[in-house]
Nucleic acid binder design. Structure first.
Ligand code: FES
Ligand code: FES
Lengths: 149, 149
DNA sequence: TTTTCATGAAACAAATGATGTTACGAAAAA
DNA sequence: TTTTTCGTAACATCATTTGTTTCATGAAAA
């Protein structure tokens, strides 16, 4: 199955934007992500609808973060993207008449629901600020290792 | 995304087989699952490789469970199917050079790993016998409600 | 005002992966 | 020998994500 990588994409884009002063164009972000500006607009559009970023047209236009880094969680981003399906595994038939299949579905659904709840909880505990500081730590560590060598 | 429903399928098939005395043909299972006998053979073939079922050709041939219902866990079945990818969400680039993306990936991977661990743990706690008794309970409840009405 | 730069949006194309189908061979029993 | 049933390969279909092309719209610069 082809995995939905939009959450990964917007995180990369947002952290990139967080390091810039002015707005960042779709063109620039597309180069970073190795994709097409139209794909960037399409994906970032979801975040604009959610009020997380803003966009401006024309000269000096582009995308800006419209929120405090510490107030945006991965869960909010996941929701902004429309809460895409979490699992690549699922039931064959969602509304089966067969009692055997209902039994199987119930067992699987319960288990998947539990795992998804954990995932969403963790998502709600991670903010953009967390990732930014994590990045700063990695960046610093890289500089140190470079100085040593 | 199109979800992998093979685990759901084989569970349905196995519970069906558990209620039968003799072997069950791919044709019969395909009718139950609403699919094609070849798909059944293809999928059940994984379970045969794992030693969970056996198959016989010719007259009175078909599929048999080759294990105790209480000893087969959902996790074993998941493994027999080749441990298909759990999540429909993932990183854009698995081996990025960009430190920003590495940071994002690490955060997401850690979270997904945690959720997957929970899922596999639950899978390892559920056996075919559990599902069979769950089915019996549902079946009995259905009969009671029918008698009442 | 005209040109340039940028997003917005629709429509279409490509790539991927799961599932379904067809066809033929091999083995086992009737 | 005929029938049944699995084993396997090859191909077709379907759904979804991602990428691409195209044109319109708005905003700033020249
Ligand atoms: S931030 Fe631009 S390539 Fe990673
Ligand atoms: S067991 Fe055969 S249809 Fe559910």
């Amino acid at each position: 199955m082809k995995r939905d990588s939009r959450l990964s994409s917007v995180l990369h884009a947002l952290l990139h934007m967080a390091e810039q002063d002015g707005p960042v164009t779709s063109e620039t972000l597309a180069l970073c992500l190795g994709t097409n500006p139209v794909v960037v607009r399409r994906t970032m559009g979801y975040l604009r609808q959610a009020g997380i970023v803003t966009s401006e047209r024309g000269h000096a236009g582009g995308w800006r973060i419209h929120a405090d880094l510490g107030s945006v969680t991965l869960r909010q981003l996941h929701e902004a993207l429309g809460e895409p399906a979490t699992f690549a595994i699922g039931n064959r038939n969602e509304t089966p008449e067969c009692l055997v299949e209902q039994t199987v579905n119930a067992a699987l659904e319960g288990t998947f629901a539990e795992a998804e709840a954990l995932l969403l909880t963790r998502f709600s505990e991670i903010t953009l600020a967390d990732l930014a500081s994590d990045f700063a730590r990695r960046h610093s560590a890289l500089r140190h290792s470079r100085n040593k060598s």
